[in-house]
Design a protein around this nucleic acid. Structure first.
Lengths: 352, 352
DNA sequence: GACCATGGTTGTATCGTTATAAATTTGCAT
DNA sequence: ATGCAAATTTATAACGATACAACCATGGTC
């Protein structure tokens, strides 16, 4: 009689199921419910591990679910609960070069592995304001958490997300009074140590190319650089009109001209592989020998620079680890409130 | 009276709406329906542009929708229609280096711009078979289309997706009898021309490092290389025990040893920036001068190598364009059946 | 024996959208 | 007026999951 009853209650469904059942219709809670003779609600609660459901029932349900390879339908869960199970990574078009984004993505996917979270790339197109993708995600509940880079001292995005108490981690810090979650690399120390190394190897005049000064880490780098040159009292200059975002050709040309002029720098703090190669090319074209007339310290994020000849001193930034940390921290934050200090991490340089 | 009626029918909703209405509750079809006095169904059909809805109504609805910034709820649409509006890019862990993935992602996001499609990164972890993420996506309807790389001659993934008539584009070709969608770079021609160039500049013995031979493009490269050396009758060798996937240190060490031995190669076909730098480092460490004792031709995907000194000849592969094409083709395929020839594109080298 | 707390399970409504079928209005010929 | 087809609009049910409240045994207590 119960069989008859079932048939009567869901004639259409049954028929549909049978049709597409040719190659394993996607199992739902209903499948498990039918299989175990329980109600859909019970199955749902059992899988959620609710203590009101008898332990034995929970185990039985879990077993059947595993057996038939049940996975909850994301769309249905999302519609009902409002949780998207999506982490949005906002990718900047400038990040084309040298796998900056890729390393971070690798870290992120590692953090997300084994969780139901998906990583969605939300591009930020350069012809629109930085805040746009964030607003869009917030307004349309497109993600449970956001990760972004290129943080600014008074970053709009940070303000907006803090106001809305929306989970996020940014790469880089702001100068806002309110503390916020971040993962950052110690660019102050990078520039400081790079400058010190150059001075130690006898450079008399240092040069540095900074990131665009809209970004906080540009200030950090400048500060670290300036502290070192002041401590040692050597000459210095900061490249103007170009930045770490400039095309490598433009950077090379800048230094090409600069080296023609009087009292050129002989030590270079290079905030990335691209700028390092561009400056090295300019020096090479002027017949300046690395290790003799000129010296370099470069930040490398890839291990690639270990192969460059002549060898240059490098300092490593682990972007993959940054991504991993950001992912882990964001997941914690999404799970529930976390003291903000626990969502802040500064990647320090290795001891020497 | 109709007002009363409404209140009676949806008392809870109204209340809820009022509560969270403090800061602009997310507009739904219902919002538009209330605003226009139409039924939810009508609004839905109107926005879909159904010809059965009066033109004037369609315009009015469209106007109101734009006014209040309505965007359909992805979860609800997905649940109802089964379409996810997701493109899944399967990312291989080997693709860390030099923005291979990033360029492609940039192209993809450009293709997806203005569409409702989202780009989801599905990692393929190296400790699991290549086909796993594809099976997972297929089984759980996690995307409307798939893009993947590192295609093999008898690629499992291609077979599976063809069988299921599931939209996909892969980067690289198979050797399967059935034609399938792809975007590929002409690696045969790359290796052929690279070898020819080296011979033209006087090299007597060429060497090449191939991709792992599980990948189809490894065969293409080998074939192009072999054709050139046979045509010209010069010596050659193919590096064994290493591949383009090897760590740069290992590649450098390999050639370090090789150059110690007798009759070393004097011309190098480098399938990527990493391998080029590693080989150049090995040569440098042996005092071999580029342009004199040894020559290089490198494939570059980033523009970075234009800065390398001494200069080396490079051949460019545009991965960003590849991503763009793959995105555009995939969208067409998702929209409906397309003759397979129109979903095949071979990126040819620029004429010289 | 009636009553109630407890543990365990179930029914109902709902998230926002769309496919389907039904209902309503309109226009026009009869 | 009357009927009927065409043009519009609407009601209903469903996608698969979960929040909430209600339900039903069971066993102990008075």
């Amino acid at each position: 009689m119960p069989l008859d009853d079932l048939k009567e209650r869901r004639p259409v469904r049954r028929a549909k199921g049978a049709v597409r059942g040719s190659d394993a219709a996607k199992p739902t809670l209903r499948t498990i419910a039918d299989l175990t003779g329980l109600a859909v609600t019970t199955v749902s609660r059992a899988l959620a591990g609710a203590p009101q459901i008898a332990l034995e029932t929970r185990q039985r349900v879990a077993h059947v679910a595993a057996e038939i390879g049940y996975l909850p339908d994301r769309a249905a869960q999302r519609l009902r609960t409002g949780r998207t199970q999506v982490i949005s990574l906002i990718l900047d078009p400038h990040e084309e070069i040298l796998g900056y984004a890729t390393s971070m993505i690798n870290g992120l996917t590692a953090a997300l592995r084994g969780t139901p979270y998906h990583l969605v790339i939300s591009p930020h197109f350069s012809d629109s304001p930085q805040i746009e993708p964030v607003e869009h995600i917030l307004r349309n509940r497109l993600a449970d958490g956001i990760i972004f880079t290129r943080t600014q001292p008074m970053d709009d995005r940070v303000k907006l997300l803090m106001q809305n108490d929306f989970p996020f981690i940014c790469h880089g810090r702001t100068e806002l009074a309110t503390p916020h979650p971040f993962v950052d690399y110690d660019n102050y120390d990078f520039a400081y140590r790079a400058a010190k190394k150059l001075i130690a190897s006898g450079c008399a005049k240092l040069a540095i190319v900074l990131p665009p000064d809209t970004f906080t880490f540009s200030h950090h780098m400048r500060h670290g650089f300036m502290t070192a040159v002041r401590e040692e009292g050597v000459g210095y200059e900061i490249a103007t009109g170009i930045s770490l975002d400039s095309k490598s050709d433009d950077i090379r040309r800048y230094f090409d001209q600069r080296l023609h002029q009087s009292s050129p720098p002989d030590g270079f703090v290079c905030g990335g592989e691209v700028v390092a190669m561009a400056i090295m090319a300019a020096c090479h074209d002027h017949g300046l020998l690395p290790g003799r007339e000129v010296d370099f310290v470069a930040k490398q994020t890839s291990g690639l620079f270990d192969q460059i000849r002549p060898r240059v001193e490098t300092i490593y930034e682990d972007l993959s680890e940054a991504g991993l940390l950001m992912g882990q921290m964001l997941l914690r934050r999404i799970a529930g409130p976390v003291p903000v200090e626990e969502l802040q991490h500064l990647q320090r340089l290795a001891e020497e």
